[in-house]
Protein backbone atom coordinates (compact mmCIF):
# COMPACT_ATOMS: atom_id res chain seq x y z
CA UNK A 1 0.00 0.00 0.00
CA UNK A 2 1.80 3.03 -1.26
CA UNK A 3 0.84 6.61 -0.79
CA UNK A 4 0.23 8.57 -3.95
CA UNK A 5 3.35 9.97 -5.54
CA UNK A 6 3.10 13.72 -5.38
CA UNK A 7 6.40 15.52 -5.62
CA UNK A 8 7.02 18.20 -3.03
CA UNK A 9 8.94 21.02 -4.70
CA UNK A 10 10.36 22.26 -1.40
CA UNK A 11 11.76 18.80 -0.73
CA UNK A 12 13.38 18.75 -4.17
CA UNK A 13 14.83 22.22 -3.53
CA UNK A 14 16.42 21.01 -0.30
CA UNK A 15 18.06 18.08 -2.06
CA UNK A 16 19.34 20.54 -4.67
CA UNK A 17 20.65 22.66 -1.81
CA UNK A 18 22.49 19.69 -0.30
CA UNK A 19 24.35 19.24 -3.60
CA UNK A 20 25.15 22.94 -3.62
CA UNK A 21 26.68 22.63 -0.14
CA UNK A 22 28.91 19.81 -1.34
CA UNK A 23 29.85 21.79 -4.43
CA UNK A 24 30.46 24.95 -2.39
CA UNK A 25 33.41 23.28 -0.68
CA UNK A 26 35.16 22.12 -3.80
CA UNK A 27 33.78 23.84 -6.88
CA UNK A 28 37.28 24.95 -7.88
CA UNK A 29 38.32 21.32 -8.43
CA UNK A 30 35.35 20.53 -10.62
CA UNK A 31 35.16 23.81 -12.47
CA UNK A 32 38.66 24.12 -13.90
CA UNK A 33 38.33 21.25 -16.40
CA UNK A 34 35.16 22.96 -17.61
CA UNK A 35 37.34 25.80 -18.89
CA UNK A 36 40.00 23.64 -20.49
CA UNK A 37 37.74 21.25 -22.33
CA UNK A 38 36.17 23.83 -24.64
CA UNK A 39 39.55 25.45 -25.10
CA UNK A 40 41.04 22.18 -26.34
CA UNK A 41 38.09 21.37 -28.60
CA UNK A 42 38.03 24.77 -30.20
CA UNK A 43 41.81 24.80 -30.65
CA UNK A 44 42.03 21.29 -32.05
CA UNK A 45 38.93 21.08 -34.17
CA UNK A 46 38.18 24.72 -34.86
CA UNK A 47 41.55 26.40 -35.23
CA UNK A 48 43.46 23.27 -36.30
CA UNK A 49 41.20 21.06 -38.36
CA UNK A 50 39.02 24.00 -39.39
CA UNK A 51 41.86 25.46 -41.45
CA UNK A 52 41.60 22.55 -43.86
CA UNK A 53 37.82 22.57 -44.09
CA UNK A 54 36.99 24.75 -47.03
CA UNK A 55 33.32 24.17 -47.88
CA UNK A 56 31.58 26.69 -45.66
CA UNK A 57 28.90 26.02 -43.07
CA UNK A 58 25.16 26.18 -43.35
CA UNK A 59 25.14 29.94 -42.90
CA UNK A 60 28.38 30.61 -44.75
CA UNK A 61 30.37 30.86 -41.53
CA UNK A 62 33.86 29.43 -40.91
CA UNK A 63 34.30 25.90 -39.54
CA UNK A 64 35.00 26.97 -35.97
CA UNK A 65 31.93 29.15 -35.91
CA UNK A 66 29.98 26.29 -37.48
CA UNK A 67 30.88 23.72 -34.82
CA UNK A 68 30.89 26.01 -31.76
CA UNK A 69 27.12 26.01 -31.01
CA UNK A 70 27.00 22.22 -31.41
CA UNK A 71 29.90 21.81 -29.01
CA UNK A 72 28.09 24.00 -26.50
CA UNK A 73 25.07 21.68 -26.73
CA UNK A 74 27.30 18.60 -26.41
CA UNK A 75 28.99 20.02 -23.35
CA UNK A 76 25.61 20.54 -21.67
CA UNK A 77 24.79 16.96 -22.60
CA UNK A 78 28.00 15.65 -21.04
CA UNK A 79 27.55 17.65 -17.85
CA UNK A 80 24.01 16.35 -17.43
CA UNK A 81 25.00 12.78 -18.26
CA UNK A 82 27.91 12.56 -15.83
CA UNK A 83 25.89 14.04 -13.00
CA UNK A 84 22.98 11.64 -13.43
CA UNK A 85 24.93 8.46 -14.14
CA UNK A 86 27.95 7.72 -11.96
CA UNK A 87 27.17 10.32 -9.31
CA UNK A 88 23.60 9.22 -8.77
CA UNK A 89 24.48 5.52 -9.00
CA UNK A 90 27.05 5.84 -6.23
CA UNK A 91 24.61 7.71 -3.97
CA UNK A 92 21.94 5.11 -4.68
CA UNK A 93 24.01 1.99 -4.09
CA UNK A 94 27.16 2.69 -2.12
CA UNK A 95 26.63 5.80 -0.03
CA UNK A 96 23.06 4.83 0.89
CA UNK A 97 22.57 8.56 0.96
CA UNK A 98 19.02 8.40 -0.36
CA UNK A 99 18.06 5.88 2.32
CA UNK A 100 19.07 8.49 4.85
CA UNK A 101 17.32 11.40 3.12
CA UNK A 102 13.97 9.64 2.88
CA UNK A 103 13.76 9.18 6.64
CA UNK A 104 13.03 12.91 6.84
CA UNK A 105 10.07 14.84 5.53
CA UNK A 106 11.62 14.47 2.09
CA UNK A 107 10.26 11.59 -0.01
CA UNK A 108 12.18 9.67 -2.64
CA UNK A 109 10.28 11.35 -5.47
CA UNK A 110 11.50 14.72 -4.15
CA UNK A 111 15.05 13.38 -4.03
CA UNK A 112 14.88 12.24 -7.65
CA UNK A 113 13.51 15.61 -8.79
CA UNK A 114 16.16 17.44 -6.76
CA UNK A 115 18.89 15.42 -8.42
CA UNK A 116 17.35 16.19 -11.80
CA UNK A 117 17.36 19.93 -11.10
CA UNK A 118 20.89 19.74 -9.87
CA UNK A 119 22.03 18.03 -13.08
CA UNK A 120 20.33 20.80 -15.08
CA UNK A 121 22.28 23.30 -12.99
CA UNK A 122 25.54 21.50 -13.73
CA UNK A 123 24.66 21.36 -17.43
CA UNK A 124 24.08 25.11 -17.37
CA UNK A 125 27.50 25.63 -15.80
CA UNK A 126 29.22 23.34 -18.33
CA UNK A 127 27.43 24.74 -21.36
CA UNK A 128 27.58 28.33 -20.12
CA UNK A 129 31.34 28.23 -19.65
CA UNK A 130 31.73 26.66 -23.07
CA UNK A 131 29.69 29.48 -24.53
CA UNK A 132 31.92 32.04 -22.81
CA UNK A 133 35.07 30.37 -24.10
CA UNK A 134 33.80 30.49 -27.69
CA UNK A 135 33.89 34.28 -27.33
CA UNK A 136 37.68 34.08 -27.05
CA UNK A 137 37.71 32.74 -30.60
CA UNK A 138 36.27 34.64 -33.50
CA UNK A 139 32.63 33.81 -32.80
CA UNK A 140 30.46 36.78 -33.72
CA UNK A 141 29.19 38.49 -30.58
CA UNK A 142 25.45 39.01 -30.80
CA UNK A 143 22.55 39.42 -28.40
CA UNK A 144 21.32 36.09 -29.72
CA UNK A 145 24.02 34.34 -27.69
CA UNK A 146 21.81 35.05 -24.68
CA UNK A 147 19.13 32.87 -26.24
CA UNK A 148 21.55 29.97 -26.02
CA UNK A 149 21.32 30.03 -22.21
CA UNK A 150 17.74 28.75 -21.86
CA UNK A 151 18.50 26.34 -24.71
CA UNK A 152 21.42 24.93 -22.71
CA UNK A 153 19.08 24.48 -19.76
CA UNK A 154 16.64 22.60 -21.98
CA UNK A 155 19.41 20.35 -23.30
CA UNK A 156 20.43 19.71 -19.69
CA UNK A 157 16.80 18.98 -18.79
CA UNK A 158 16.51 16.37 -21.52
CA UNK A 159 19.85 14.62 -21.01
CA UNK A 160 19.60 14.61 -17.21
CA UNK A 161 16.30 12.81 -17.60
CA UNK A 162 17.84 10.32 -20.02
CA UNK A 163 20.77 9.67 -17.68
CA UNK A 164 18.52 9.39 -14.63
CA UNK A 165 16.20 6.97 -16.42
CA UNK A 166 19.16 4.81 -17.45
CA UNK A 167 20.59 4.85 -13.92
CA UNK A 168 17.22 3.95 -12.45
CA UNK A 169 17.03 0.66 -14.36
CA UNK A 170 20.57 -0.71 -14.13
CA UNK A 171 22.08 -2.67 -11.25
CA UNK A 172 25.74 -2.91 -12.28
CA UNK A 173 27.92 0.17 -12.60
CA UNK A 174 29.87 -1.27 -15.58
CA UNK A 175 26.74 -1.05 -17.72
CA UNK A 176 27.33 2.71 -17.97
CA UNK A 177 30.06 2.03 -20.53
CA UNK A 178 27.29 0.96 -22.92
CA UNK A 179 25.49 4.23 -22.29
CA UNK A 180 28.59 6.25 -22.98
CA UNK A 181 30.01 4.22 -25.86
CA UNK A 182 26.83 3.30 -27.67
CA UNK A 183 24.75 6.39 -27.01
CA UNK A 184 26.71 9.47 -26.04
CA UNK A 185 29.73 8.96 -28.31
CA UNK A 186 27.76 8.34 -31.55
CA UNK A 187 25.43 11.17 -30.55
CA UNK A 188 28.44 13.46 -30.27
CA UNK A 189 29.90 12.43 -33.62
CA UNK A 190 26.77 12.09 -35.75
CA UNK A 191 24.35 14.76 -34.57
CA UNK A 192 25.42 17.42 -36.99
CA UNK A 193 28.00 19.13 -34.82
CA UNK A 194 30.89 18.50 -37.21
CA UNK A 195 29.14 17.95 -40.55
CA UNK A 196 25.59 17.98 -41.90
CA UNK A 197 24.53 14.34 -41.60
CA UNK A 198 21.86 14.81 -44.26
CA UNK A 199 24.54 15.42 -46.87
CA UNK A 200 26.89 12.59 -45.99
CA UNK A 201 24.81 9.71 -44.60
CA UNK A 202 22.41 7.33 -46.38
CA UNK A 203 18.80 8.21 -45.65
CA UNK A 204 18.25 5.30 -43.22
CA UNK A 205 21.04 6.57 -41.00
CA UNK A 206 19.94 10.17 -41.33
CA UNK A 207 16.63 9.14 -39.89
CA UNK A 208 18.40 7.58 -36.87
CA UNK A 209 20.59 10.64 -36.39
CA UNK A 210 17.60 12.94 -36.53
CA UNK A 211 15.84 10.94 -33.87
CA UNK A 212 18.63 11.49 -31.34
CA UNK A 213 18.00 14.28 -28.84
CA UNK A 214 21.45 15.74 -29.44
CA UNK A 215 20.61 16.32 -33.12
CA UNK A 216 17.68 18.45 -31.94
CA UNK A 217 19.85 20.15 -29.35
CA UNK A 218 22.51 21.09 -31.89
CA UNK A 219 19.92 22.44 -34.33
CA UNK A 220 18.31 24.43 -31.54
CA UNK A 221 21.46 26.11 -30.23
CA UNK A 222 22.88 26.73 -33.70
CA UNK A 223 19.59 28.11 -34.98
CA UNK A 224 19.16 30.48 -32.02
CA UNK A 225 22.70 31.82 -32.22
CA UNK A 226 22.42 32.38 -35.97
CA UNK A 227 18.90 33.79 -35.86
CA UNK A 228 17.62 31.00 -38.05
CA UNK A 229 14.31 30.24 -36.37
CA UNK A 230 12.69 27.75 -38.68
CA UNK A 231 11.80 24.43 -37.05
CA UNK A 232 13.21 25.42 -33.68
CA UNK A 233 9.89 25.06 -31.92
CA UNK A 234 9.81 21.44 -32.97
CA UNK A 235 13.40 20.88 -31.77
CA UNK A 236 12.65 22.47 -28.41
CA UNK A 237 9.37 20.56 -28.09
CA UNK A 238 11.16 17.31 -28.87
CA UNK A 239 13.69 17.86 -26.07
CA UNK A 240 10.94 18.91 -23.70
CA UNK A 241 8.80 15.84 -24.37
CA UNK A 242 11.66 13.32 -24.24
CA UNK A 243 12.92 14.93 -21.04
CA UNK A 244 9.54 15.04 -19.36
CA UNK A 245 8.57 11.47 -20.23
CA UNK A 246 11.90 9.93 -19.21
CA UNK A 247 12.22 12.18 -16.17
CA UNK A 248 8.81 11.10 -14.91
CA UNK A 249 9.76 7.48 -15.54
CA UNK A 250 13.04 7.94 -13.65
CA UNK A 251 11.28 9.49 -10.63
CA UNK A 252 8.83 6.60 -10.56
CA UNK A 253 11.57 3.97 -10.88
CA UNK A 254 13.87 5.52 -8.28
CA UNK A 255 10.98 5.76 -5.86
CA UNK A 256 10.46 2.02 -6.20
CA UNK A 257 14.17 1.29 -5.91
CA UNK A 258 14.46 2.91 -2.49
CA UNK A 259 10.95 2.55 -1.04
CA UNK A 260 10.55 -1.21 -1.11
Amino acid sequence: MRGRTIVDLRGAARVWQRNLWVYRDRWYYGLLPNFFEPLFYLLGLGVGLGYYVSSGGQFGEGYLTYIAPGLVAASAMNGAAFETTYNVFVKLHFGRLYDAMVTTRVNMEDVALGEWWWAVTRALVYGGIFLLITLLFDTPVTWRLLLAVPAIALVGYCFSAIGLAFTSVIHIIDVFSYFFTLFLTPSFLFSGIFFPVEERFPSALVWVAQATPLYRAVRLVRGLVNGHWQGLAFDAGYLLVVGTVLGAFAIWRMQRRVIR
Binding site: R14, Q17, R18, W21, V22, G95, L97, A100, M101, T104
Partner: peptide
Protein backbone atom coordinates in the same frame (compact mmCIF):
# COMPACT_ATOMS: atom_id res chain seq x y z
CA UNK B 1 18.63 6.10 13.52
CA UNK B 2 19.26 3.38 10.96
CA UNK B 3 21.32 0.25 11.38
CA UNK B 4 23.95 1.05 8.81
CA UNK B 5 25.94 4.24 8.92
CA UNK B 6 24.60 6.32 6.08
CA UNK B 7 26.01 9.69 7.01
CA UNK B 8 26.70 12.13 4.21
CA UNK B 9 30.42 11.55 3.59
CA UNK B 10 30.64 14.59 1.37
CA UNK B 11 29.55 17.01 4.09
CA UNK B 12 31.15 18.14 7.31
CA UNK B 13 29.90 16.92 10.69
CA UNK B 14 27.87 20.04 11.48
CA UNK B 15 26.49 20.22 7.92
CA UNK B 16 25.23 16.67 8.28
CA UNK B 17 23.04 17.98 11.08
CA UNK B 18 22.07 21.26 9.41
CA UNK B 19 20.99 19.64 6.14
CA UNK B 20 18.79 17.25 8.13
CA UNK B 21 17.12 20.21 9.73
CA UNK B 22 16.59 21.67 6.25
CA UNK B 23 15.11 18.41 5.01
CA UNK B 24 12.58 18.68 7.82
CA UNK B 25 11.83 22.32 7.13
Amino acid sequence: VPQMDNLDEELRVVDNLLIYARFNG
